[in-house]
Amino acid sequence: MRLPVLSPSLVGAVLAPALLLSACSGEISVGGPGAVDRADLEGEVSANMSGPDADRYDVACEGELEAEVEATQDCLITFSDDGSTTGVRLVVTAVEGDEVEFEQTLFIPADEVADAVERAYADPGLTIDEVTCEGELVGEEGATTTCDIVSSAGDVTVEATTTTVDGLVVDFDLTVVS
């Protein structure tokens, strides 16, 4: 089966370009013994979002953020209009007293990448049975993940490569690799 190389801004449509994550790093006080409370963490991520559509997004973190260098916590930012999501991974870079400093890295969850791949290749008329992606797509230029497309016409592997990141909008290209 032959599929075209696509350069969609599919995930760019997932989150409105008017919304920005205003900082790549942040600082927050420890809310409990050795960790930043989940609610405080969600509030900090929300506070870092700006733009006219900031109130149309919900932030949900998986749990608290341990006050240890290199500790991580993932939070999902969900657009209330269509339910699409972008992830933010928080990584602790320093702990000084009750202050926890962290960096934020965007990522697109694997299921969101799979949905985008399916939309991109279903449009040219291909009937797709299933799309599964190896993992998330990190919001850093050049980052990649692969996705397998299963269809009645045959199976194909597609690579998604981040091309640009603007606020919470992560654009990527799709290339057939096998």
Score class of each variant (00 low, 15 high):
residue 47 A to K: 14
residue 48 N to K: 14
residue 49 M to V: 03
residue 49 M to Y: 06
residue 49 M to E: 07
residue 55 D to R: 15
residue 56 R to E: 14
residue 59 V to Q: 11
residue 60 A to M: 10
residue 62 E to V: 14
residue 63 G to E: 12
residue 64 E to F: 13
residue 65 L to R: 11
residue 66 E to K: 09
residue 67 A to F: 11
residue 69 V to R: 13
residue 70 E to R: 15
residue 73 Q to H: 00
residue 74 D to I: 07
residue 77 I to Y: 08
residue 78 T to A: 14
residue 78 T to N: 11
residue 79 F to I: 08
residue 79 F to L: 14
residue 80 S to R: 15
residue 80 S to D: 13
residue 82 D to A: 07
residue 82 D to V: 11
residue 84 S to D: 10
residue 85 T to S: 11
residue 86 T to M: 10
residue 87 G to I: 06
residue 88 V to S: 10
residue 90 L to D: 07
residue 92 V to P: 05
residue 93 T to A: 10
residue 97 G to E: 02
residue 98 D to V: 09
residue 100 V to F: 12
residue 100 V to E: 03
residue 101 E to M: 08
residue 101 E to T: 11
residue 103 E to A: 08
residue 106 L to C: 09
residue 107 F to H: 06
residue 107 F to W: 09
residue 108 I to C: 00
residue 110 A to Q: 14
residue 111 D to V: 12
residue 112 E to F: 07
residue 112 E to S: 12
residue 113 V to C: 05
residue 113 V to Q: 06
residue 113 V to N: 04
residue 115 D to C: 00
residue 119 R to I: 10
residue 121 Y to A: 02
residue 122 A to R: 15
residue 124 P to A: 05
residue 125 G to H: 06
residue 125 G to P: 02
residue 129 D to K: 04
residue 132 T to L: 09
residue 138 V to E: 13
residue 138 V to D: 12
residue 140 E to T: 12
residue 142 G to H: 03
residue 144 T to P: 02
residue 144 T to R: 03
residue 145 T to E: 00
residue 145 T to F: 02
residue 145 T to H: 01
residue 145 T to D: 02
residue 149 I to D: 00
